[in-house]
Simulated assay, not measured.
Amino acid sequence: MDRIEAMTVFVAAADEGSLSAAGRRLQMPLPSVSRKLADLEAHLGVRLMTRSTRQLTLTDAGRDYLVASREILDRVAEAERTAIGGSMNPRGELVIAAPLMFGRDHVLPIVMELLSRSDDMNVRLVLSDTNANLLEENIDVAVRIGVLPDSGLTARQVGEITRVVCASPAYLEKHGTPETPSDLRNHECVTFSGLSPSHAWSFSSSKGTTRVPIRSRLSVNTADAAVAAATSGLGLTRVLCYQAASQFAQNSLVRLLREYEPTPSPVNLLYAHQGRLPAKTRCFLALATERLSQVLVVSK
């Protein structure tokens, strides 16, 4: 049994969700696909997939083997490119995960620049404010904001950002400008559930951290909505500095209580580092490090 070929068939079947679709992708007859998967399972002594008339479902062993198979096939492809002198040419699909707004505003331009440089690669950009599992979801690089837990993954810090309180000039003219965090008790707020609790905000000072009760007139689950509501004059909001950067530049929002802002949060590029990274990953990391380091200095 050719194990590399069997892994290729297995990965194709997992990706496509059916044996017939895997056969079409690999230009291989359906009986050959079925036989190679059966031979692989017999060799391993475990079932990798459960088959029904409608779909294929990975077993627990199959999910683990899929991650390992992808890594092995990537290494084989990289070794072949190195052997023919193509290790510096990025090829294949690169999967990147990033927070929604940050990814749209800062990662997408990097991706477009990278793609303009190489015709032999493509990118799947996953934008979500929920942290994805890199290994389980086959993500090559993730942008993470905040202190990272120990995970065995490699992190490259590219800058820092902080949480900011802001409001529209119209709101401040009507309600006054808070000078200290305690003044927030007299103001209306728009809270973003992904960042801070809706009942209190924390601030830093020489005396330590202070939690200040606030009145949340509106609670939303995206930063876009919080920024839009604050810009319209509904109240003060607190978001990450990059999430309101364009409004600050246009003077439609005013940054408040700067001397009480908390310690900035690190921004990292997170990836699994086992051996030599594929060229596609190395090229993205180099370009993203350069571009984000420039942007995040301004965003502090």
Rank of each mutant, 00 (worst) to 15 (best):
87 S>K: 08
240 L>N: 01
207 K>Q: 03
49 M>C: 11
250 Q>G: 04
120 D>N: 11
226 A>T: 01
35 R>K: 13
186 N>K: 12
26 L>D: 00
147 V>L: 13
170 A>H: 12
26 L>F: 11
179 E>I: 15
204 S>R: 15
147 V>F: 14
18 S>P: 01
81 R>H: 15
236 L>S: 00
193 S>Y: 13
184 L>M: 06
93 E>N: 05
73 L>R: 03
101 M>C: 10
47 R>E: 08
80 E>I: 14
40 L>K: 04
246 S>N: 08
294 Q>R: 03
127 L>H: 06
121 M>A: 12
66 L>S: 05
257 L>P: 13
300 K>H: 02
252 S>A: 05
247 Q>F: 07
56 L>K: 04
199 H>C: 04
207 K>T: 05
189 C>R: 11
228 A>N: 05
278 P>K: 11
45 G>A: 02
66 L>P: 01
111 V>S: 06
108 L>A: 07
92 G>C: 01
267 V>G: 00
148 L>I: 09
129 D>F: 09
287 L>R: 07
91 R>H: 13
6 A>L: 13
242 Y>P: 03
216 S>N: 00
173 E>Y: 12
260 Y>V: 10
138 N>W: 14
85 G>C: 11
80 E>G: 06
35 R>H: 08
181 P>L: 14
213 P>L: 02
219 S>C: 06
26 L>P: 00
158 V>M: 09
251 N>P: 00
177 T>Q: 09
204 S>W: 09
50 T>H: 14
58 L>T: 14
205 S>F: 12
129 D>S: 06
124 R>C: 15
179 E>N: 13
199 H>I: 04
92 G>F: 08
232 S>E: 04
205 S>P: 06
119 D>K: 10
203 F>E: 01
242 Y>G: 02
193 S>V: 04
95 V>Q: 08
204 S>N: 11
284 F>Q: 07
251 N>S: 05
120 D>I: 12
139 I>P: 14
126 V>R: 10
128 S>F: 10
141 V>T: 05
222 T>M: 02
137 E>D: 10
121 M>L: 14
